[in-house]
């Protein structure tokens, strides 16, 4: 169901988004035009590994938390995150993940008392 626009004196929900959208399109066209007309450098090359792994670790948190509980989830998140950097070998990454899990449990569950389930639901 499309949102109605209404009139300037009695705007409906669709008026303002369309207004902003029209401005975005107009400025977007200008930007494209200036991009075509002016010479510039090409964007830097993309590095896919950190991009994918950092997002994957955040998504893992969302996917696992309800099922696996706080501790296991955080361990996986921290492990995936370390892998994004490829700076640590797997053992060091695991130790780091363990330490981070303990620190976060201490901070968020014990110090701040947030209602988070620590272990998986049985």
């Amino acid at each position: 169901m499309p949102l109605e626009s209404g009139t300037a004196g009695a705007m409906e929900a669709g008026y303002y988004p369309r207004l902003v959208c029209a401005l975005v399109v107009a400025l977007g066209c200008l930007t494209v035009l200036s991009g075509v007309l002016q010479k510039g450098e090409l964007p830097e090359t993309w590095h896919w590994w950190p991009l994918v792994m950092v997002s994957a670790s955040a998504v893992a948190f969302a996917a696992l938390l309800d099922m696996a509980g706080f501790a296991i989830t955080l361990f996986v998140v921290a492990l995936l995150a370390s892998l994004a950097g490829r700076l640590l070998n797997i053992w060091r990454a695991a130790v780091l993940a363990g330490v981070l899990v303990m620190l976060n449990i201490a901070l968020f569950i014990y110090a701040l008392g947030l209602p988070l389930r620590l272990w998986p639901r049985i």
């Binding site: 950092v54 948190f61 969302a62 998140v77 995150a81 370390s82 993940a97 981070l100 976060n104």
Partner: peptide, 26 residues
């Protein structure tokens, strides 16, 4: 940096207890 990522994920989650927000962050 792994500590910062974990911190961001937990921090974002705690605002509304919403895992959807963490996906949004990603």
């Amino acid at each position: 940096f792994p500590a910062i990522i974990v911190f961001c994920a937990v921090g974002t989650y705690t605002v509304d207890s919403s895992t959807g927000d963490v996906v949004l962050m990603a």
